[in-house]
Design a protein around this nucleic acid. Structure first.
Lengths: 350, 350
DNA sequence: TTTAGCACTTAAAGACATAGAGTGCTAATA
DNA sequence: TATTAGCACTCTATGTCTTTAAGTGCTAAA
């Protein structure tokens, strides 16, 4: 257990180190503490904190820097989120205020706001409703043997892709196939739809369409896209500032951002199901699987939309972030994002 | 005028400097020349080349590095493109060989290949036909007051975007409006279409549709997208390697890649109209407007598709590139890209 | 015209001294 | 008993000096 003074010392070393990125010495720290103690006393406490593994030295006679364990202790026991500044508040309100064409635009916008205000890199994911249903499927002939396949889901997201179709498939057949898909599958959860196009649907199509395989390929492709998570990354370029010229880690991180599956692994929290209140979770580099993230810190949280699932907000930055401010900010944006999406749904319903 | 030996010396200094990034000294160079001369002779020639401004020194007793003027001279008078290696050739053939859904996929693929083979950053632009015509316009209702607008051009490119429509516009009206647009404008060049929706089309719509403005906004938006240039950038991450940790130039370059208009300014060659044979043009940093590009070099060329316009291929790299190899490579990819697109068109026509 | 030879220049690397910021420990103090 | 003043010690950062190696320019001979 830490004494109260040790806690204050740890807290302030972390605060100062975040600002200066330099080891903090006892004399310097003396002038930064809320109470008056001598540098020798601070030195004694620092030695104890180091013994406990909460502080490190860069060399035997250097000042102290927080260790990973020290950060962990700080995050678990000492951190108090601070209020969002008026300036930040104004930016958030103003930037969010606009007309959105679809939910994903709001989600994307929140990643932009978060990255702008923090100068780190933000990642957001739209609400992941367990029972997203198929709302409609269209094939639009574009001429030149091209068709555009469009799939709309019950939460308003739209997937589309252009396909080349061989001359052997007639427009008539396609139209019949689309009608069957819509008659049979609209209103059903995407998971069930995915199962059924493997099982009974092919036979059903067979009756009316001569070669259902090409058609099912198209539908399956776009269905898979619709069912997959789509992440938005804001402030990619900020990474250049806080990755200390570590080109190799930059490369792997940028590649990571392109792979939605890997991002999902990284962000989906193990206890996201059981944790109802969207708690903010900070994971330090060593606690993350890809060891590329060693010197970074990842803050994740989730937001709830009543009856419309739960999404994820995350922030990637250096280990030495001003956590108080950042977490206050994240909390506000979480609420704001949820509110905007809720508004969007209620606008849609009337 | 350079003597033959001076030319050889300049050429070899550039060659060695490209490999080592170190100043080249007379003794070292002596062992790298095709003929046997003493270091003193080389020193004399080097002094003359420096006098002419073709070489620089980093300090008074250092070896020589090529000056910008030296590179310019080399590019204009000494450079001989080398043949593409068998290995590169195999990569190009193999990577190009696949089924493409649309022309832009081929253009994008060529940017990827070029950046992979060079380790630099490639930018490509699809063929820019003067008389791209409107091939069709569709509005697909998606439910929830959303519609997808789709515009197809005569060269097979497709633009689509989702819009929110107010309840005041009826589906019937939209359908009528779409029919009028297609009847009146299909087959006409996009430039003319853009003009006509400012002039006579609004009145024409007025007769059949109560409020044509919302509709024209949608059509105008997507028309503008279809008429704009769409660039593909390959090997963005390679920039991290050859930008020497210059974070600020990295940021401006990455931002540049996002702005198609700025890229167009940069890449569209002044003499692209008058130059029929798609010559390869190298522009060094100081010859480019954005002074962010000071330490880089931009190689541009164009490719012709008979009756289907002309596109642009570009490569951004450090000033000290192995130009012989790069230019040979660029030339081959230019031909290959043109061939693939031509094949695509002829496949489409039967 | 070319080359050998030589004096000169400079950057890079190592050796060394010094200042400054920091520590740990001891002994005195409240 | 907890705190503090004092002091010896440690390590980095900085500056100076020296040496080495790679290079140059110039001169005189081939």
């Amino acid at each position: 257990m830490l004494t109260q003074r040790q806690a204050i010392i740890l807290k302030n070393i972390i605060r100062i180190y975040t600002q200066t990125e330099q080891p903090v010495g006892s004399k310097h720290l003396m002038n930064e503490l809320p109470m008056r103690v001598s540098s020798a006393t601070i030195r004694n406490d620092m030695a104890k904190l180091e013994e406990m593994g909460l502080l490190d030295k860069t060399h035997s006679s250097s000042g102290r820097i927080p260790s990973i364990k020290g950060y962990r202790y700080y995050l678990d026991h000492l951190l108090e989120p601070s209020d969002v500044s008026n300036n930040d508040l104004a930016v958030i309100q103003q930037t969010f205020n606009q007309q959105y064409q679809m939910i994903d635009d709001i989600v994307e916008q929140s990643a932009k706001i978060l990255s702008t205000l923090t100068s780190y890199t933000a990642i957001t994911l739209g609400p992941d409703v367990q029972d997203i249903r198929l709302d409609g499927f269209r094939l639009v002939p574009l001429g030149n043997h091209q068709i555009m396949a469009i799939l709309v889901t019950s939460i308003g997201t739209v997937q589309n892709q252009i396909f080349h179709i061989p001359t052997t498939i007639s427009g008539d057949e396609l139209e019949r196939a689309v009608r069957i898909i819509n008659d049979e599958l609209v209103g059903q959860p995407l998971t069930l739809v995915a199962r059924r196009i493997q099982t009974d649907i092919p036979q059903m199509l067979m009756k009316y369409v001569s070669s259902p395989n090409g058609f099912l390929d198209i539908f399956g492709t776009i269905l898979k896209q619709a069912a997959a998570d789509h992440f938005y990354v804001g402030g990619r370029l900020n990474l250049l500032d806080f990755a200390n010229n570590d080109v190799s880690s930059l490369k792997t991180l940028y590649s990571l951002f392109e792979k939605d599956d890997d991002l999902a692994d990284l962000l989906k929290l193990p206890d996201v199901e059981t944790d109802p209140d969207g708690k903010i979770i900070v994971r330090l580099g060593n606690e993350l699987k890809p060891h590329t993230l060693q010197n970074y810190s990842l803050i994740t949280t989730s937001y709830d939309i009543a009856n419309h699932g739960r999404g994820v907000i995350a922030l990637l930055g250096p280990t030495s972030m001003p956590y108080s401010r950042i977490i206050g900010l994240l909390d506000l944006i979480r609420e704001e994002l949820a509110r905007r999406i809720t508004d969007y749904y209620s606008d849609m319903d009337n």
